[in-house]
Design a protein around this nucleic acid. Structure first.
Lengths: 233, 233
DNA sequence: GTCTATATCTGGATAGAC
DNA sequence: GTCTATCCAGATATAGAC
């Protein structure tokens, strides 16, 4: 369990879009205009999937609600039972994904104790998660700037929270004398950048035939080389 | 000259938008509807700057040509003397920037010989360049997917070309026994990811008060730790 | 070279039948 | 709950005066 494969991870946490949409439905059941959960969830799944697919091809702004209605298999009128405006749809998707990501990441890190396994686990969990929810991660990254002021703030806060997770692990390791001293905040930033590249530049990694497990090991090794300065071999 | 400051670099290569626009004008002087260079360049500068500024706030798709005309200080009609369609404007900006970036990067790397200084110089040059042309780099990254098929191909090719620059340096160092063996392509990819973060997540670095020189040193140190496994201090 | 005015279309959003 | 039909604001692009 110290180094779970991606397949195992994917079963561990239920990451289906359906689960994500069911949460969305339950979160504001009162305000929702559709009362039947089965129907509401089924349609939310269609809408979210269609929105992610179209947006990731052409951008959220360029996606028309007519296209969305066609891809989701619902009429324009029906769509508006699930969100009040295009902007609200954007915010809904962002918020719901963030909740899932935060929850899973934190639980994964807690599963380890020592600084070294914790760091590796955090890196791996982030990559596995972004692999399982790739369309959402890409969407969240590219469309953050189109959020309203408040939602935008929350997105930045979430990004910083993720980094803090890494910062804490690094500082813990430094306090214990396991890791060498260096600016933990900056290193965490670099780690985040490498993790983001995994879902932002998918075509490149696919083209090179790099699997997610290998990428995880690569990043972890690079970071450990700096923090431990082990000699290879 | 081994480790030039950003200020020096900025003087070294002329990176003004004006220079970039003058090239644009000369490149298709025949087809251009405006014949007077002074006027054409002045207006191209206004248009490009306005387009970058607006696009980077709200996205190219969400930027209307009315806004562009207001920000650039030209009427809608006048705009269409400088490009044939909104899509073409997008392609123009992308292409012109790419040309400048490629040229500068390659000349910078050639200025050094040994693998270690070369690697450091390449990292630094990329960061300095993206600092000097920050709006363009951000724009190029975020809007690549909105390009037509051919232009999109060229953008990906340019990205790979930049990485090849790093790959070659790493392989050179490995061949000389200066760098430890490892997959050069993958490491180059990680380097690129860290370099991109500099202009993609500007708010974060600003907030932390990290200057470009410091960031360059940080990335270079991390990479060297892996390739050299030097002991600090 | 630049402007104003306008043709033409497509977008988000809603009303009301079923 | 879902659909069709429609409103109208705002988009790109162009024509023609100056």
């Amino acid at each position: 369990m110290a180094d779970p494969e991606y397949a195992a991870f994917r079963e561990l946490v239920d990451l289906s879009m359906e689960e994500l949409c069911r949460e969305q439905f339950r979160d504001d059941r009162e305000r929702a205009r559709i009362k039947n959960e089965r129907i509401a969830v089924r349609n939310l799944v269609r809408i979210f999937n269609a929105a992610l697919s179209l947006s990731n091809r052409k951008g959220f702004a360029a996606m028309s609600l007519r296209e969305l209605s066609a891809e989701a298999g619902l009429s324009m009128g029906a769509l508006y039972n699930y969100f009040a405006s295009k902007d609200q749809l954007l915010a809904m998707i962002q918020r719901q994904g963030r909740a899932v990501v935060t929850r899973v990441l934190e639980s994964q890190v807690e599963a380890e104790t020592g600084p070294r396994p914790r760091l590796r686990r955090a890196i791996q969990a982030h990559l596995f998660l972004s692999e399982a929810l790739q369309p959402w991660f890409y969407f969240a990254y590219m469309e953050t700037r189109h959020l309203g002021r408040d939602e935008h703030r929350q997105a930045m806060a979430a990004e910083l929270a993720t980094e803090t997770l890494f910062v804490d692990i690094i500082r813990q390791g430094q306090a214990q004398g396991v890791f060498l001293p260096m600016d933990a905040e900056l290193l965490a930033g670099l780690i985040k950048a490498m993790l983001q590249d995994w879902y932002l530049k998918r075509w490149k990694h696919k083209r090179r035939g790099v699997a997610v497990e290998r990428y995880a090991a690569l990043v972890a090794d690079l970071v450990e080389a700096r923090l431990l300065t082990v000699r290879p071999g």
